[in-house]
Design a protein around this nucleic acid. Sequence first.
DNA 1: ATGGTGGACCTTCCA
Length: 261
Amino acid sequence: MRIASWNVNSLNARLPRVEEWLERLQPDVVCMQETKLEQDAFPTDAFAALGYESVHHGEGRWNGVAILSRVGLDDVVTDFEDGADKYEEARAVWATCGGVRVASLYIPNGREVDHDHYHYKLEWLGRLRAHLDANHDPKQPLALLGDFNIAPEDNDVWDRKAFEGATHVTAPERDALTAVKDWGLTDTFRELYPDADGLFTYYDYTAGRFHKRQGIRIDLILATDPLLATLQGALVDRNGRKAWDGNKPSDHVPLYADFDI
DNA sequence: ATGGTGGACCTTCCA
């Protein structure tokens, strides 16, 4: 089973790119973030034409997450159903696809250290851990995919000095991510490439960052042990952006992992 | 020069 993730930065702007990518990569399950669509504006028919069932959790102008699957799509849950979201933003959707519990996650950006949304980000990650504790078991095949807006380690940013005092690399953010992982999840990319650097998933549109390879690795596929045991490969699909540069690429690169399940 | 691009949408927010 090939499971992929992509922050598309507006599905309305990106649909042709997503369709090309689906036909090339042939993923079985896809998690998308930042659809930026109203709930009912999701292009269900376009994905059905490519063989995918889908679920969208959208709020309109911002955020929005979705899952596509061609191996079944059941037991959908949106966000955490904990009644604790002070902004009521559409940032998580869960489904069971081909026997794997999957979540498409768009962790809050944080904006600036100590900003209201920075604390919202930390709280959101705490709610994610609580949701896993309450609803799931690390002995089941489960994967969290999405834009975590956290670079787990210093070799996940192109220049550590450029991130002094910035979000995405602070200890509280990394600690909150570690707490999620400590439930029983492993970063599939790092499992296969423990020392790799320069393989990023996000490049700011400005300042020619993509061409200068000045990015950060903030999009992750985390897997529980029974799923990890079947891991065949994992890649950051840099061509997902390079090939389309000048042709309305997302600022995020797609990534995927292959499991023998 | 503290910018730069791109997407939401219409004047500013967000990343």
